[in-house]
Design a protein around this nucleic acid. Structure first.
Ligand SMILES: [Zn+2]
Ligand SMILES: [Zn+2]
Ligand SMILES: [Zn+2]
Ligand SMILES: [Zn+2]
Ligand SMILES: [Zn+2]
Length: 218
DNA sequence: CTCTTGTAGGGAAAAGCCCGGG
DNA sequence: TCCCGGGCTTTTCCCTACAAGA
């Protein structure tokens, strides 16, 4: 699925017409030919350019999904040999990178860097709404507390959650009881509020947000 | 008051990807 | 040119404190 999305995006990039304005621009033209000299190898799918042919070949695998290097232990495939080497540490237990503050060891350098921020207090990522700062970029999922986005819906009661793990925890609470049944379609709900929200989908009243997510089939 | 459930912050593992240099 | 490894980013999951409420 993810690869399909990337291919679609790549096709969209290909279809994007070259701007006549920039083509007529002398400076841009110079830059363009300079790029062709310095980055002679272009991806035929997304038009990214590379300094070496091998780099292009490796990049192409991000479109094709080809994974020529398989782990001899678990069979998992990788697009790059170096990535396979890193992966092999999960089997050997090798953790070459030690935290200078607490001694905890990590398999990957980046993991140590992220961990070190827990000691230094460095928080490079700021919420654009409330300016709260975070140690990891992924923690900006915090933004959903502002937008109300809840992409993960329970298949049993329909309640939505902002985080997948919270939905998973919620799902475990279901023991099969659905006390509030919809008078139109019979669908059951655990809470009255859920039924009320559901009933509105029959009367045609939808919030913008729910319409948005139903379009995305989330 | 206590037990259950919802919310969200924060840490980490693993994978993904680009780049320079031997 | 081929190949290796460094460096950084992204994705996914886990643990947990705390709040809300029955
Ligand atoms: Zn490409
Ligand atoms: Zn393996
Ligand atoms: Zn440490
Ligand atoms: Zn915020
Ligand atoms: Zn549910």
């Amino acid at each position: 699925m993810k690869r399909i999305v990337s291919i679609v995006l790549a096709l969209l990039l290909m279809r994007r017409p070259h701007s006549p304005d920039t083509d007529a621009n002398g400076d841009d033209m110079t830059c363009h030919t300079d790029n062709n000299k310095h980055l002679p190898f272009a991806c035929s799918v997304c038009a990214k350019r590379f300094t070496q042919k091998g780099h292009l070949i490796a990049h192409t695998r991000t479109h094709t999904g080809e994974k020529p290097f398989a782990c001899s232990v678990c069979g998992k495939g990788f697009s790059r040999k170096g990535d396979l080497r890193i992966h092999s540490r999960t089997h050997t237990g090798e953790k070459p990178f030690a935290c200078s503050f607490c001694g905890t060891r990590f398999r990957q350098k980046g993991d140590l860097i992220a961990h070190t921020r827990t000691h230094t207090g460095e928080k490079p990522f700021a919420c654009s709404v409330c300016s709260t700062r975070f140690t990891q970029k992924g923690h900006l999922i915090h933004m959903r507390t502002h937008t109300g986005e809840k992409p993960f819906s329970c298949t049993v009661c329909g309640k939505s959650f902002s985080k997948k793990t919270n939905l998973t925890a919620h799902t475990r609470t279901h023991a099969g009881e659905k006390p509030f049944a919809c008078l139109v379609c019979g669908k059951g709900f655990t809470q009255k509020g859920h039924l009320m929200a559901h009933t509105r989908t029959h009367t045609g009243e939808k919030t913008f947000i729910s319409t948005f997510f139903s379009i995305l089939h989330i």
